[in-house]
Every structure is written in C-alpha cells, then in structure tokens.
Simulated assay, not measured.
Amino acid sequence: MTPPFEYSVVDPTQRRDLALFVALSLMGGGAFPAVETALSYMPPLLIAAFRFDLAGVFLLGYAIMTTDSWRPSTRGDLLAIVGGGALFFPFGQGIWYIGQALTTSALSGLMASLIPLLTAAWSWVLIPEDRVTRESLVGLGIGFVGVLLTLVPGATSLVNQGAVGKLVIFVSAIGTALGSVLIRRAENGISTPAVTAWSMLLGAGLMHAFSPVIGESPADVTVNATVVLALGYLTVASTALAYVIYFILIDRRSAVETNLIHYLFPVVAIVAGYVLFGEALPSLALVGFVLIAAGFGVLKRRTIVAELVN
C-alpha cells in the first residue's frame, strides 16, 4: 500500500490519480451552488433522495452492463454498502442539505474542509495502517484552526439560524467521515460502481423514509426548468461521475488522503456562490480558509514540490 501523502511523480498512476482529484474537486464543489438553486424549489432531504434515486439506478445499470461482480454476497460487500448507504450518503448529503438550507452555499462548502480532519480521527481508531505521520498532523492541526475561524463569524447566539445550520453540518461531517473510513476498511469483492450504486439506493430509501418525519412533502416541490437543470447537474456530474471517481480514489488511497478533496471544494463553492448568488464571507472566515489551504499545503507538500520541480 502507498503510504499516505507519499507520491512518486514518475508513476503514471499517480498522475492519473491527481487528474481525478482535480476533476472531482470541480464536480463536488459545483454541487453546493446547485443545491442552493434547488433549495428554492424543493425541500432539502427530498433533493438528496431524488438525486440518489436517479444516480443509483444509472450506476447500477452501468455496473450490470460492465461487470459480473455487481451482486453483494459477502460480509465485506454489505459493510461497504451500509457504510455508504447508512452513513456517507444520508449524512454527507441529506443532513448536509438541511444544514445548508440554514446557511449559505459558500459557508457549506467551506465547512466541507472539516471532513479530512474528522476522517483522520476515525482512521486513527479504525484503520491503524492509515494513521498519518507527525508532520501530517501539523498540517491537519493548521487546517483545524482554520475551520474553527470559519465557524465563528455570524454565530452571535447559540440558537440563531446560522449557528444551527453549522451544527447540523458538523454532525453531517462526522457521519460522512465515518462512512468513508468504513468503506475503506471493508474488503468487498464487487465492483466500485456496484458498491456506489447500492449505497446510493440504500441512502435514498432512508432519506425518503425520513423526509415526511421532518415535515417534507412532494407537494412542496415546484417543477420548472431551473430545478430540472440543477437536479440534472447534481445527478450526472456531481453524483454519477463524481462518486465513481471518489470510490476509485478511496480504493487506491487512504481515506484520510482521499478526503483532502474537501479542502478544495470551498474554492469552487465560494466563487460560484459569489457569482451566482452574491454571497460573501466575513473576513475572519476568509482568514480561516487561508489557514485551511496552508494546512492542505503542508499535507501535500511532497506532491506539490515534486510537480513544480518536474
């Protein structure tokens, strides 16, 4: 297994992984403004449920056509599917959308940088071989300070809307990180698209079941060209394609390293939030983002230096 954060620039596999990493950052970061658009026409949990209904069916069909190993049959298969379907998707998407409805797409994207830190914590407990080095812990620590700074602005009281949204997203990030570590830990035998598809369908079913519990109804959905385009982007680009790339990377890299992608989501989310919705972040939050980026630089220093030299 390749040690976390260690790369060899002469290996073409490393370069492909880096290209996938960049593509995923664009797809995933673009999901935040797409969700912000859809929230004007649909309740948050229903957005996530419909998104993964469609993407799950698409990916399962793709898995059936491209591989014979699409049926779950082992304990490892089930653990990977449950890790994704009961934790990664419901927490990382459904509950996250509820939190974003109480904040902004820019802040939601910025809080995604919590996930690498929480993943490192879960990996320390559950996957000893993925434990980061002391130098990498410094980078994670710098990023954590930056995240704390992003949580302070706007939280003038512990019960205001912004603070509640941040708390919901924080809980969502904990579940997302745990789900990704469980997927990494599971020794499944079915293909990556199949694991992704079954996880999406399980997660969508759970979100549909929970949606009416929190007062959501299909009657609250407004169908028009805008919401169709937003859901189309979420389903195809930010889900069907993005999650296949994500699980390919998590198969080849540690959960901690793969989840560094969440350090890049804020860049796309902040730019898109400003251009599309006129959203701006307080200066303290921007300072926090600089620290998050600095922490990312420490974690990926070998790759960055090697690429610049090469």
Rank of each mutant, 00 (worst) to 15 (best):
D17C: 05
T66E: 00
Q14V: 15
G141H: 02
V22F: 14
A112M: 14
G92N: 12
A34M: 10
S113Y: 03
A48I: 13
L18Y: 14
G29W: 03
I64T: 06
L20R: 02
L78C: 04
L137G: 02
G30A: 03
A112I: 13
A55L: 10
L45S: 12
S105M: 10
R51Q: 00
A48N: 04
S105K: 09
G28R: 03
V82A: 15
L137V: 14
M65V: 08
L46P: 06
W124A: 13
V145T: 10
S105I: 05
V145R: 10
F89Q: 02
A101I: 04
A106H: 02
G83Q: 03
G92K: 08
L102I: 01
A86H: 05
A49Q: 01
L59N: 10
E129N: 10
L118F: 15
T66L: 05
L46C: 07
S113V: 04
E36T: 09
G99N: 02
A31C: 15
M42Y: 03
I98C: 00
A106D: 00
S113Q: 07
I115F: 02
I81Q: 05
S108C: 05
G146R: 00
L60D: 01
E129F: 14
E135H: 09
R51A: 07
L59V: 12
F144K: 00
S73F: 06
D130K: 03
V147K: 09
G85L: 07
R15G: 08
S113E: 06
A120C: 05
E129R: 13
M65Y: 14
I81T: 05
D130C: 04
R75L: 09
G29R: 09
E36M: 08
E129I: 13
L54I: 15
L39K: 13
P43E: 12
L59F: 10
T37Y: 11
S136N: 15
I64D: 05
R51H: 02
E135C: 03
S123I: 11
E129Y: 15
D17N: 15
G61M: 15
W70L: 08
L24I: 08
F89K: 04
S40M: 11
G141L: 12
A80P: 08
S123E: 08
A34E: 05
L148M: 15
A34C: 07
P43D: 11
L26V: 15
L107N: 04
A55M: 09
T119N: 11
M42A: 13
L126M: 12
L126C: 04
L26H: 01
A120Y: 04
R131N: 11
T67G: 13
G94Q: 12
P116N: 01
L114D: 05
D130F: 06
S123C: 06
Q93D: 11
P90C: 13
M65F: 14
A86G: 09
G56F: 05
F52Y: 08
A48Q: 11
L45G: 07
L78N: 03
L78P: 00
M42L: 06
L79N: 00
